[in-house]
Nucleic acid binder design. Structure first.
Lengths: 139, 139
DNA sequence: ATGACAATGATACAATTAGTACAATATTTA
DNA sequence: TAAATATTGTACTAATTGTATCATTGTCAT
C-alpha cells in the first residue's frame, strides 16, 4: 500500500517519449492490479533518479496522469493513485460536499449572530460578482 | 463542555492538506452541534499525536480557525470554541467577519468546482430553512 | 543546411509538513 | 506567597515535494 517500488522498464531507443512510456506503464500496472487505488507513487525526483532522467520528465508524466484523473499529485505531499468512486457514488459525494459546505457556512453565520437578512444580502452580493467562467449556468 | 474527544478522520490521500481537513471538520462539528461554544479543543500536541501528524500542522489549522474567529487560542491556556460574540462589538468587525466568512464559502465552493447555479440553489434551500428565531432582523 | 517542433534538462519557485527554540500561562511545591 | 516546573501555543527555519518557465537538444520536412 505504501511506497511500492514501481519498477518501470524504459526503452530509450524505442522512439517513444520517456514520459509516454511512464504514463502507459503506470496505466498498465494499475490495470493489472500491480498498482492499486491509494498507492503512493515515488516522488518525481526519486523516480527520476532511478530512471536516470530529469525529474521534469517524470513530472510531465505525472501531470498527464493527473489530468486523466488516474493519479492525484499534491504539491508538498506526494502523488497517489486516485481512488475511483463509481460515478453514482461520485455524484452523491459531490452533492454531500456542497451541502456540508453550505451547512457549515450557515451554521457559522448564525453562530456569529448574523441575521437571515444580513447573510442573504451578503450572499446576493457575492453571487452578483460570480463570473461564470466556463460555467454557462444561466437561471 | 470540557475536553471532548474531537474525533477527526483524516484522509492522507484525498488531495486536501491535513490542516485543511482539520479546519473543515472542526467547522462541521460546530455547525452540527457536536462542538459547542466554550468547548475546549485538544492541545496542538495531543491532537497531533492522535492524528499522527506534526503538531505544527495542527497549530496551523488552529491558527486558521482562530483567524476566522471560530476558536480562540491562548498561549499557555489552550484553545476553545469562541463564545458567540455579543452583537454589540464594533459594527466594523462584525461586517468584516461576515464578509470574510462569505468570501471563504464562495471561494471554497468554486475551488471544489461547483457552478454558480448549484451554489445559488443550495443557498436558497438553506435560506428557506432558516428559522428566524429572535433575530431582530433590522434592515 | 535550416527552420519548426517536440522532448528533455536546468533553474527558480511554491505548498505542505517537520524540527527546534521560545514565550505565556497554569500548576506544583517549598 | 514565591519560586520552580510543567503545559500550551508561537515563531522561525528547514526539508520534502510538486510546479512553472525557459533553455537546450534532437529529429524531420523543406
Amino acid at each position: 500500500m505504501f511506497n511500492k517500488k514501481l519498477t518501470l522498464h524504459l526503452d530509450f531507443h524505442s522512439g517513444l517519449p520517456i514520459y509516454t512510456q511512464i504514463v502507459t506503464q503506470v496505466q498498465s500496472q494499475l490495470a493489472n492490479g500491480i498498482l492499486r487505488p491509494g498507492d503512493q507513487l515515488p516522488t518525481v525526483r526519486a523516480l527520476a533518479e532511478e530512471l536516470r532522467v530529469n525529474f521534469n520528465t517524470v513530472a510531465r508524466a505525472y501531470r498527464l496522469l493527473d489530468e486523466a484523473r488516474i493519479i492525484s499529485t499534491q504539491q508538498g505531499r506526494g502523488t497517489y493513485i486516485t481512488e475511483i468512486p463509481p460515478p453514482k457514488v461520485s455524484e452523491r459525494l459531490r452533492q454531500e460536499s456542497i451541502e456540508a459546505l453550505t451547512l457549515r457556512f450557515f451554521g457559522e453565520a448564525r453562530r456569529l449572530g448574523f441575521s437571515k437578512g444580513e447573510v442573504s444580502q451578503m450572499v446576493r452580493d457575492q453571487l452578483k460578482l460570480w463570473k461564470d467562467t466556463q460555467d454557462a449556468e444561466k437561471e
